[in-house]
Design a protein around this nucleic acid. Structure first.
Lengths: 151, 151
DNA sequence: TCATCTCCGACTTGACTGGTCCTGTATTAG
DNA sequence: CTAATACAGGACCAGTCAAGTCGGAGATGA
């Protein structure tokens, strides 16, 4: 558990894709590159646009591109744009209002853990996401060949 | 998002409770202390027992208690006992087998982030969970009085 | 102006979690 | 011995939310 939604997944994939691609890409183009349902990918991109992480261009040659440098966008930004604020517990969303857990005994320690997670997510940028992958993929391919004897 | 399930929440609450209580406590007793549905709490405790984190005693004066020292049980242990292994992405569960994401471009960076999260969860013990809270609660009570004028 | 491409917001569906119920078994108090 | 208490565990129901779909609006190019 502690899984992030598929939409957030798709969002990160798209952001990494756009970080590497110089121009703009359409929703369809990105979706087909990664076998993601086109409409769903479109929806994710729309939300990212509304949150200001992307800029969109309508019309025949339209598409999306990053609104700012990939080095200035963190994984936390993307996830929170899609899934809302990161909240480990149900009550941490309302911060204090949580009748049931008036006597809750783990709220504050958990809140501290949440801070750790957020800081981990904030430390990784979309740029790193994209570049990391390039480097790693080369290694992975080599390993796959070594282990399974195929690409 | 990135929220953990309510059952995991309850599990942590119960573990912290048992860490402070010297003897053993029944499911009903714990449930009522925190306004948690009794049956559901029982289920959570049962699972914790099956995973070896608790020992149970049947019969009239029965109940649950920690199977080992609270300092030797981490938050990660508890969460994984209830919700299964921590997996940030859908495909990280199967590790490599994930047809759809054959060309996934963010798998490895995300996997590294998962490691960070797990290590954060593994660094906090149930003992800390329980004690942290005691200290904080005193402060909280004082704050509540100051702000709302009531306990 | 027409055709086409793309973005966009509302809608439907299906899985999953939270929660309940019921039956069975072990232990102990009286 | 019996009744009360407490754990064990399977089956079941319901509300919620994510995943995925549908029809429309806006922009562009010919």
């Amino acid at each position: 558990m502690l899984r992030l939604s598929k939409k957030a997944d798709y969002a990160l994939i798209a952001m990494a894709h756009l970080a590497l691609k110089p121009g703009s890409s359409s929703a369809r183009e990105i979706a087909e590159s990664y076998d993601i349902p086109t409409e769903l990918m479109a929806k994710v991109l729309q939300r990212l646009t509304r949150r200001g992480l992307l800029t969109s261009q309508q019309g025949t040659r339209g598409g999306y591109q990053l609104s700012r440098a990939a080095t200035g966008i963190t994984v936390a930004d993307v996830i929170q744009a899609i899934d809302g604020p990161v909240s480990v517990t149900a009550c941490s969303a309302h911060a204090d209002r949580c009748g049931q857990f008036a006597k809750c005994n783990v709220r504050d320690p958990l809140w501290r853990i949440r801070e750790l997670i957020v800081s981990a997510l904030s430390r990784t940028t979309v740029s790193e996401l994209a570049n990391d992958n390039d480097a790693v993929n080369a290694v992975r391919s080599a390993q796959l060949v070594a282990v399974h004897g195929r690409v």
